[in-house]
């Protein structure tokens, strides 16, 4: 959207109608009263069990959770495959691209020749939630989840997440996965909200 601006003429001459204040005050009050009445009606409807549709955008936070958009970047998560193992192949791309260097990986190899991260440590106190690890990952193995609660601790050592803490089943990450696929690969399977 192009930025538009309005030039305010501070020396504007008021017409007699405007200078008499009262009609303009009534006009202003009609706006505020319109908001008052529509909001009152909305609040009464909601109390009466109607659908929650109101102009008031206030969220009762601890009781109500906000709707997280699909493109939201929460705490990074490692994707767990359906057989319970991690998708990550320990290539180290995320480790390299991470701007605050919060990821550190020790790679290893399974008996069938698959590479996997022996340890995968992500320092949550340093992570800047930029999502570059997700972009760099060739395997869709690290995804910015929609976790946004309980990211704070009183002790920084508690914010260093181990592989087990980061592993998420794939079904919990579907919305974000579809969002990034739509964005990076032009797949328009997801809809907003």
């Amino acid at each position: 959207m192009a930025i538009t601006f309005k030039k305010v003429d501070r020396n504007a001459k008021l017409t007699l109608w405007e200078a008499s204040y009262v009609p303009e005050i009534l006009r202003g009050m009609s706006i505020t009263m319109r908001h008052f009445l529509t909001n009152m009606a909305g609040l009464v409807m909601e109390l009466a069990g109607g659908r929650k549709h109101r102009k008031i955008m206030t969220l009762y936070y601890p009781e109500e959770d906000p709707v997280i958009p699909p493109s939201y970047r929460g705490r990074p998560a490692l994707v767990r495959r359906s057989d319970g193992l991690e998708k990550c192949v320990a290539c180290g791309l995320c480790e390299v691209i991470c701007p605050p260097h919060c990821i550190s990986i020790v790679g290893a190899e399974r008996e069938n020749g698959e590479r996997y991260p022996l340890t995968y440590t992500l320092d949550g106190s340093r992570c800047i939630f930029c999502g570059l690890c997700e972009e760099a990952c060739p395997k869709e193995a690290i995804i910015m989840s929609h976790d946004w609660k309980n990211l704070c601790e009183y002790d920084r050592s508690k914010m260093i997440y181990s592989k087990e803490q980061l592993l998420y089943p794939e079904r919990n990450l579907v919305r974000r996965l579809e969002a990034i696929r739509g964005r990076y690969f032009g797949i328009k399977r997801y809809k907003n909200n």
Binding site: T32, M33, H35, F36, N39, M40, K55, I56, M57, T58
Partner: peptide, 10 residues
């Protein structure tokens, strides 16, 4: 309350 409802708050 009135100011809140007038200003789309609670």
């Amino acid at each position: 309350k009135q100011s809140a409802v007038m200003q789309d708050r609670i």
